[in-house]
């Protein structure tokens, strides 16, 4: 068994997705509200608060500059949280995965279903965030609508990375490490709240080579401003390749953890 075996999947994978969707729909009001409030809070404190001291940034208002970053962060947080803490609870405390693999479904299908659901959470979050930003006139249409399908792809990437951490975490507390060593630095240094070009050149290269959020921000900003960034294609390819690698890795790591 290697770390990059290609899983054999059937349509049953969606039943795991459906299970999570059914749970989500039972408490949808609780699930919707934070997703709706979070971009508002950022927008008021940073966009209109801090933004008051900034005349223009790369030729646009500060609020317009950070609007796509707020979507990218929402995409990252929802998929990553779903496939770390939420998946860990289902796997470890609720034994939900054990219950499902006693049916015709395989562990590969369970994990893939979880990943697809993580990606879906990102899309749901994006669909909630876009109108908030649109209400303040911060994003261009119709190009911004492309962020909706894009959020599924980007969310899938963060889901697979999160699932890798879930597979190697001995307990739920150790999931805090990727939160503050990986997610928080990305949140701050991926061209989110200031342009990447302000950083020292070697760090710029590192951020572009290693931080997935950098690429998600590049694409999201290209779409909300309706003006493509020179690296947009590279970012797209980067996200696809990384998704494939982390997808295979996450499924195989989970298999190693759960099949004994």
């Amino acid at each position: 068994m290697s770390y990059f075996d290609i899983p054999k999947l059937t349509g049953s994978t969606w039943k795991v997705w459906l299970r999570n969707k059914d749970v989500f729909m039972k408490t949808y009001m609780v699930n919707f509200l934070p997703n709706f409030l979070q971009p508002l809070l950022y927008l008021f404190s940073l966009g209109f608060g801090v933004g008051n001291f900034i005349n223009q940034i790369e030729g646009i208002s500060y609020a317009r500059f950070i609007a796509p970053a707020l979507i990218a962060i929402a995409i990252m947080n929802s998929a990553f949280f779903e496939c770390t803490f939420a998946s860990f609870v289902r796997m470890y405390f609720q034994k939900t995965f054990d219950a499902i693999i006693a049916t015709p479904l395989t562990i590969e299908e369970v994990i893939t279903g979880e990943l697809l659901w993580g990606a879906t959470r990102s899309t749901i979050n994006t669909v909630i965030t876009l109108p908030v930003l649109a209400a303040f006139g911060l994003i261009e249409f119709p190009s911004s609508l492309l962020i909706i399908p894009f959020s599924f792809l980007a969310g899938f990437l963060f889901a697979t990375i999160g699932m890798c951490f879930t597979a190697i975490s001995p307990n739920i507390d150790s999931l805090n490490y990727p939160m503050f060593l990986f997610i928080t630095p990305m949140f701050l240094f991926s061209g989110t709240f200031f342009p990447l070009s302000l950083l020292p050149v070697p760090i710029q290269y590192l951020a572009t080579a290693l931080l997935p959020l950098t690429h998600v921000v590049i694409i999201a900003r290209s779409l909300t401003l309706a003006s493509p960034h020179p690296l947009i294609l590279l970012s797209f390819v980067w996200i696809i390749l990384a998704s494939v690698v982390f997808f295979l890795l996450s499924v195989n790591l989970m298999k190693k953890r759960l099949i004994v």
Binding site: S12, L18, R19, V23, K26, Q94, T96, A99, T103, P104
Partner: peptide, 20 residues
């Protein structure tokens, strides 16, 4: 390993779905 996110009835309904 019953699913605590569901009721008694939903547990069986969701499980039946895994068996098509």
């Amino acid at each position: 390993n019953l699913d605590p996110d569901f009721t008694v009835y939903e547990n069986l309904l969701v499980y039946a779905r895994y068996f098509d």
